[in-house]
């Protein structure tokens, strides 16, 4: 159905308009490599909409639908239902949405999808703010981080997306990061093989919004994992498993000092941020042991 004007290997054009060093570009390439051609994507407005291209041009070889910010999960569920009527049970239906489109305005739509048990893979790439509209804070922005709407640092903690997913009792959900591409690939493949609603929450370095050097995107993500600011784990049928957790957490400054969004953080906020991170890590370790 599509005219190939410039060939690429893989399912995504090489020259797309994501910023230099963008984590989201690497995430979608990894995801589609793992899923293959028989995939249908739903992409809401946000940075990921750039893959859909402009006008008659697209940067994707797989069929993609660009919907609205608030209802990617509902669109995906509808497409799945349509496929079932057609007798198509082989295509993987995937929603690929940002943190704003997932944890804020898309949350009720996602909740409905998880409640109904629709056979959809929902992926949230989390760059921790509304980046495409100019870095406004979202409920995924971490405590103390600067955004244009949190000029003195966000006063409250980040929302726990996987906690919300687990409360719905879905068969599989996991966190992932560009810090570990193998782990991400494994989780995407596992999610594909499971029937029902699946959720992947993927940490997404954003040099433009985080004020980090484009060359350091992977380094920043690795520091997030080593400090516990991002924990890699999965939950299958209610059982939590941490994936290769650090034996001891590094101090959170190792992570924050690489990013300008934390340059104005005060002592009090830093202590609170560290406390939240340590508590969350210990909580997950306890849940794994249960």
């Amino acid at each position: 159905m599509i005219d190939i004007k410039k060939e690429s290997r893989g399912y995504i054009a090489h020259g797309v308009s994501a910023c230099a060093g963008c984590g989201m570009e690497l995430i979608l390439r990894t995801v589609l490599n793992a899923l293959g051609q028989d995939t249908t994507l739903v992409i809401p407005p946000g940075c990921s909409a750039l893959f859909c291209g402009f006008g008659k041009e697209t940067g994707l070889k797989v069929s993609t639908f660009q919907g609205n910010l608030e209802n990617s999960a509902a669109y995906a569920a509808g497409i799945r239902a349509g496929y079932e009527v057609q007798g198509n049970n082989h295509s993987t239906v995937v929603a690929f949405a940002g943190d704003g489109g997932t944890l804020d305005i898309g949350l009720q739509s996602l909740s409905g999808m998880m409640e109904r048990g629709d056979d959809v893979l929902y992926i949230c790439y989390d760059n921790e703010a509304y980046m495409n509209t100019g870095i406004q804070g979202s409920s995924a922005t971490p405590l103390g981080a600067w955004t244009t709407t949190t000029p003195t640092g966000k006063p409250v903690y980040k929302k726990d997306l996987l906690g919300i997913a687990m409360a719905h009792g879905i068969p599989y959900c996991a966190s992932a990061s560009v810090a570990n591409i193998k782990d991400m690939t494994k989780k995407v493949e596992k999610a594909k093989s499971i029937q029902g609603p699946k959720l992947l929450h993927i940490h997404c370095p954003c040099p433009t919004g985080w004020g980090s050097a484009p060359s350091k995107s992977i380094e920043v993500s690795k520091k997030a994992v080593q400090t516990g600011a991002w924990v890699l784990y999965e939950c299958e049928d209610g059982n939590i498993k941490l994936n290769n957790p650090p034996k001891e957490l590094k101090a959170v400054q190792e992570y924050t000092k690489l990013q300008k969004r934390f340059s104005g953080i005060n002592e009090e906020q830093l202590v609170a941020l560290q406390m939240g991170i340590t508590k969350n890590f210990e909580r997950l370790m306890r849940m794994q042991a249960e």
Binding site: I2, K5, A13, G15, S17, G53, K56, E57, T58
Partner: peptide, 11 residues
């Protein structure tokens, strides 16, 4: 509206 040309920018 529907996009049907797979193209690439000169990044």
């Amino acid at each position: 509206p529907c996009a049907y040309e797979f193209d690439s920018g000169n990044t």
